[in-house]
Design a binder for these strands. Structure first.
Length: 492
RNA sequence: GCCGCGUUCGUCUAGGGGUCCAGGACGCCGCCCUUUCACGGCGGUAGCACGGGUUCAAAUCCCGUACGCGGUACCA
């Protein structure tokens, strides 16, 4: 039987970075086993539905290089792939469960349930449940007469279908990552399967869909582990073979706890995939980083592209403990991938970035040189612009920190250097010559390299760091260089 | 509170009874390269949560404690 996995997000907002990792692991597992990767939209909570969320999920996956084999908009033999479009299916199965005695109708209002909880809480029960004990004193098809139930149904009264959780049983299952896991049914409540608005809850929908879509492996976040026994109960009640289960460790915030939006952002970590897209991160770097957040191939390797990750990925090498998001390591991956990319790969993207900022690109060769000069010192692609703007225009302001290097003798040295390069013909205005002239200047004045280097860098770029200065001077050209020196002399 | 899952350098991890006085990566520090900024190269720093067992031998197996995280909805 061929492997089929699914990524099943609910469209309640933008795709979270943790969700992206879950999708990635599912995808890697599918590809590794030559299986199928299904996208299923779990839109059963109408109150939390967000209009553009589904498109955001699809765009995010595409950006990351995760290809959907079946899903909404993509098609497949097991559709529809939106749960809201499968309502009647869940209805049918819920009925089946009631008929077989594994579930029942319940007519209690929200208020009545709250009341019950409050009452039990007062008498010392810290977490009251609608369970095998309490259901006996509630309004449901177990306590009401058949006639009464029929009357209420015919009358159109609102009702839910609840799972009839057995009183004392131990549910055991094997998790592909954690090994044997067991729960006692005593701690479980009679989970609502079908809500009063006619929609299924996650629990029913996910079991029915995973079965009917012939999902072989459920790979999802650890937050689902506690509800897995309910799912197992459902598979058993239906008489279905459950898929293999694998619960992934959570991604944690550096300060501890789940990487929530608020926490992450206060710690400088973008939390939605679209933030990474908008922030010009390298998708292959993010993928590589995410793959290693909770998994490792077991050797000392660190860099792998998607294709290699597909070959390497297995569930038994996923770790059990939560993994803290390490932003600096992400940036290390990002730099790495930028350095790996060829100039031709980088060019159209960098060009778009410059154009977007309103810069005109004199020639293709010019752009190529700018990229060559900068490639080894940017950590994110948009830094080509922030660090390379001076190739296109004179600095508007001088960096305050860099200015500390502008000393009393700086003007004199710069002036002396200027005189020398002024005498150069356009054809002689080359990196090697410019460097030679600088050497002559410092020799004459008996000072170190940096004494002239730093002020010159500041005059040209406005900053205390940046690309190799001499090729930069050559690219900028004699006239402009002299102009910038003059203006720095005036202003500093 | 209860239930469950987890715990190896600051962080991500390798390790599945002896070859581990624990290996790699990020970070940090130092040196080299560079008479500039970086890249790069080399080296260093730092860890088996604690307590009991089992065993000739435990980071590795068992039990307990602590701590962390998750769950405890007509949310997913």
């Amino acid at each position: 039987m061929s492997v089929r996995v699914r990524f099943a997000p609910s469209p309640t907002g933008f795709l979270h970075i943790g969700g992206l990792r879950t999708a990635l692991y599912n995808y890697l597992f599918a590809r590794h086993n030559e299986g199928t990767f299904v996208l299923r939209i779990e839109d059963t909570d109408q109150s939390r539905y967000v209009e553009d969320a589904e498109q955001d999920i699809i765009d995010s996956l595409e950006w990351a290089g995760i290809e959907i084999d079946e899903g909404p908009g993509k098609g497949g033999d097991f559709g529809p792939y939106r749960q809201s479009e499968r309502k009647d299916i869940y209805h049918k199965y819920a009925e089946q469960l009631v008929e077989s005695g594994h579930a029942y109708y319940a007519f209690d209002t929200v208020e009545e349930i709250d009341e019950m909880r409050e009452r039990l809480m007062k008498s010392g029960n810290p977490s009251p449940k609608y369970d095998s004990i309490t259901r006996q004193s509630m309004k449901n098809s177990l306590t009401l007469s058949q006639d009464e139930v029929k009357k209420r149904m015919d009358n159109g009264d609102e009702y839910v279908v609840r799972l009839k959780v057995p009183r004392k049983e131990t549910i055991r299952f094997e998790d592909e990552i954690r090994g044997n896991v067991s729960f006692d049914t005593e701690g479980l409540d009679d989970q609502v399967l079908l809500k009063s608005d006619g929609m299924p809850t996650y629990h029913l929908a996910n079991v029915v869909d995973d079965h009917t879509m012939e999902i072989t492996h459920v790979i999802r976040g650890e937050e689902w582990l506690p509800s897995t026994p309910k799912h197992m109960l459902l598979y058993n009640s239906f008489g279905w073979e459950p898929p293999k289960m694998a619960h992934l460790p959570l991604i944690m915030s550096p300060s501890g706890g789940k990487l929530s939006k608020r926490k992450a952002e206060s710690e400088g970590i973008p939390v939605n995939t679209k933030d990474y897209m908008a922030g010009n991160y390298e998708p292959d770097a993010l993928v590589n980083f995410l793959a290693y957040l909770g998994w490792s191939p077991g050797d000392d390797s660190e860099i792998h592209d998607m294709k290699e990750l597909c070959e390497l990925f297995t569930l038994d090498r996923v770790s059990k403990g939560g993994a803290v998001f390490n932003y600096k390591k992400l940036m290390w991956y990002n730099e790495n991938y930028i350095r790996q990319h060829s100039i031709d790969e980088l060019k159209p993207r960098v060009e778009a970035l410059f154009l977007g900022k309103g810069y005109e690109i004199p020639s293709d060769d010019f752009l190529t040189t700018v990229i060559e000069l900068l490639q080894e010192r940017v950590s994110k692609i948009d830094e080509f612009v922030s660090m390379g703007a001076f190739f296109f225009e004179a600095p508007k302001a001088y960096d305050e920190n860099a200015l500390k290097k502008w000393k009393d003798d700086s003007s004199r040295l710069i002036l002396s250097y200027k005189t020398r390069i002024e005498a150069l013909s356009e054809d002689d205005f080359k990196a090697a010559t410019l460097k030679k002239k600088l050497e002559e200047t410092i020799e004459e004045h008996g000072v170190g390299f940096g004494k002239l280097m730093m002020p010159l860098r500041i005059a040209i770029s406005g900053q205390g760091f940046g690309p190799d200065l001499f090729p930069a001077l050559e690219l900028i050209g004699k006239e402009e260089v002299l102009g910038r020196i003059d203006s720095a002399l005036e202003r500093l």
